[in-house]
Design a protein around this nucleic acid. Sequence first.
RNA 1: GGAGGGGUAGCGAAGAGGCUAAACGCGGCAGACUGUAAAUCUGCUCCCAACGGGUUCGGCGGUUCGAAACCGUCCCCCUCCA
Length: 370
Amino acid sequence: MAIKYELVHVDKNSGARLGVLHTPHGSFETPIFMPVGTQATVKTLSSKEIKEVSDGLILGNTYHLWLQPGDDIVKEHGGIRGFMKWDGALLTDSGGFQVFSLADIRNISEEGVTFKHHLSGATLNLTPEKAIEIQNNLGADIIMSFDECPPFHSDYDYMKDSVLRTIRWAKRGKEVHQFPEKQALFGIVQGGPYKDLRKMCIEELTKIDFPGYSIGGLSVGETKKEMYDMLEYLKDYMPKDKPRYLMGVGSPDDLIMGVLNGIDMFDCVLPTRIARHGSAMTSNGKIVIKNKLYEKDMGPLDSNCDCFVCKNHTRSYIRHLFKGKEMLGQRLVSYHNLYFLKNLMKQIREAIKEDRLLEFKEEFFKKYYG
RNA sequence: GGAGGGGUAGCGAAGAGGCUAAACGCGGCAGACUGUAAAUCUGCUCCCAACGGGUUCGGCGGUUCGAAACCGUCCCCCUCCA
């Protein structure tokens, strides 16, 4: 088996799990947050910097690397790890999210999904088998089944068809997976807001038997309450001896709520995207560093942070970089935001260890959201 | 001295009698962003006690029911010829 999940402790007052995830490229304490590096780069950061602001596990993307430069070229480099000179562990998404995000240039059938390349106009066929083949070439430690990520509020009949198809696709993918001993293939739970579909999906995926399970189709436009309700429901049905990965979630409140509902792994573009757009996460809430308010602010982004950026640069300087369209601004805030989440996850793990995650949540929310 | 061209909101630049408080771009201010088609997108940006009102298009004076637009005059800028 490529990975092994070890459940170390469950918070006595919540369902939060403390564990260790063993992979071919390192063992990681969970819950863990994984920065997203879609095109074999966590945007703006070098692999050395990624190492400093992550816990050693990051994401790559099947669809984008398949289109460019092509998984064959990545394979020649020894996979994504060799390509981007990343010596930590890796997880790749299957392209399932692109079925959602590129909805207007794709077509779904039983066989797979046809995309129209947004640049060349070429027609591209991504099937469950192809997605696994590409991921075999990309060489991540953890890979995803090809799924359809449908809009949360799709109607019941559509959702049911979609979930059943996603289950069939998961099975097809597993059957062609070449290196189960090197790469752990996860199944992805879909079903939108429909609890019976979600439950059925977990049960069917569990029958196929995967080394880990992802929860997809959340944080795609539904309300936080809808997402939290679903997480609470799913908590009791997810296999306890396997890692649980909530895909695409990364705002501080959602991370805490996810952990409280038994999630072990998260990834999200939010910290790096809002950083590039000029917002920083701080222990007192999100700030828009571009604002005039910070023109003469001599303090660090977050006075409670000990990252390189906070130890060395003022808010005034970082605002200046943004106003001057200097790319260092985007780099510095990306660095800080990822470090902030890394630190948040560390605090969460410590709180679980001491059975006080609920108290931690209260304190954190009070400071972060006022 | 002669011949043309031009002066529009913080800047650049449309508009050539009513649909114009004046397109568009930049700049400025604010907001959004959740398995990355995102260094992106959205809103506001003459003044005010603002679902209404008040002042604008170099200055002044006219024509007209009505002018940033037409006429006169003055001021300033640019190009060419002496």
